[in-house]
Design a protein around this nucleic acid. Structure first.
Lengths: 228, 228
DNA sequence: TTGATTTGTTAGTCATGGCTAACTTTTTTA
DNA sequence: TAAAAAAGTTAGCCATGACTAACAAATCAA
């Protein structure tokens, strides 16, 4: 009883809300996702969000009780995963074939993910030989909508002396991505935590013979795998 | 004094109208393009068209006098050519790399042409090694917006006995493209006019050992180059 | 040339998806 | 536990871009 035949008659806005909700619920694994958090995430007013949520509830993509937290139905999740698949495949294409850099892909992929054609995205997938991860290191859902979240460890959770490999960064902000690139960090960079400063939570890290100090906020957005 | 730095803050609708107007004016080389013709072409009501034309006039993309015919400004043309460039490059990409057939590309390209990123389209152009023609045989405008119309001769203009090569088809209708493919015609097919029937304007043509009868309407949408 | 037909325009309506301002409910905290 | 803060909701507004119905201008044809 999989919902395969989705005509996907959703507007760009509806899709944006569903994807955002999914990212807050599943990827960020938030405790409670409410109206205002979703509004904040999308940079719209709570009133707009309330409106849209109402609409998505009647369409059976979202469930919630009055004044209660929001959740996605299986249908809603399915739409969101499909969008994430499209987003990540396009990001991969832009980087691997069209000379886009890490920090340039997000904005264009945000547009491309709304193109409606399953043939397009499945053929793009095939053309690139079914890549498993996007340029930010995130796993790309397959055509059946199977979704896996990387077991993410934040750089900020490491102790002094530990060594890790960069596997992903939060791609929500262009400025952040630009900064990550600029200081010379890239996917698979090996990072060693030199010092954790208690008083302001900043962290001194070493990579490629470079030493940098980064803020806690920065370290919260960088996901790594511990090395031994 | 070329207008290069176009922020292109146009909506999808505005772009659609400009492109349609361009196609009627320049590609179809129509005598007089009025409100209703444009409305018809876009499948919207004359009232909607009137509304939009008014808006595009204040934005300096369109010129016209009250109750007079419509025309594009240089700015308007520039936008339209850019859209046509994007459309044709995407069509080429879909056919050459993503296994789309002749008749499938149009609909998806209609969506893709609205993606806003000059880097995207210029890199796509480079990736395909600057193709000159799209899968329907139309010339692709280059990055500077230089536009060339193929000197088109309609199949319907040939006399009995003449031989020609198919160089382009009008890609306005999916059904038409499908039909062209189905009867076995392709770009560069050699076609011989066997018979022109005066009473209903139908034409009997021969190609690849096949003989088919096609209507006048069909022959009006098939563009050829005469052979000797 | 005058009436009919076609073409263009205007007014007013609707849906979508934003917004602010004001209000209500829930949660926090003093 | 009661007041303050935060979160959620509602009402009412705006722009965009469709629509229909009614009207005006231009063109065609008898």
């Amino acid at each position: 009883m999989t919902n395969k035949s989705n005509l996907n008659n959703l507007t760009k806005s509806e899709e944006d809300y569903l994807k955002a909700l999914f990212q807050l619920l599943v990827e960020d694994d938030s405790e409670k996702v409410g109206n205002n958090l979703l509004a904040d995430y999308l940079n719209v007013s709570p009133a707009s969000t309330n409106n849209m949520v109402k609409k998505l509830k009647t369409k059976n993509y979202v469930v919630s009780e009055k004044y209660g937290k929001l959740d996605l139905t299986e249908q809603g999740k399915s739409i969101a995963v499909r969008l994430i698949r499209k987003h990540r495949l396009w990001e991969t294409f832009l980087c691997k074939y069209l000379n886009f850099s890490w920090d340039e892909v997000h904005e264009v992929a945000e547009q491309l993910e709304h193109i409606k054609s399953s043939k397009l995205i499945d053929e793009l997938d095939r053309f690139m030989d079914f890549p498993e991860k996007d340029p930010h290191g995130e796993i790309i859902p397959n055509a059946d909508g199977e979704y896996a979240v990387l077991p993410k460890i934040m750089l900020s959770s490491l102790a002094e002396g530990e060594v890790c490999k960069l596997i992903a960064v939060d791609d929500g902000s262009v400025n952040f991505l630009k900064y990550v690139s600029e200081i010379g960090l890239a996917l698979s960079s090996e990072i060693k935590v030199i010092e954790v400063r208690e008083f302001d939570n900043s962290i001194r890290i070493q990579f490629n013979d470079t030493i940098e100090t980064v803020t806690r906020k920065f370290a919260d957005n960088v996901f790594v795998k511990k090395l031994v």
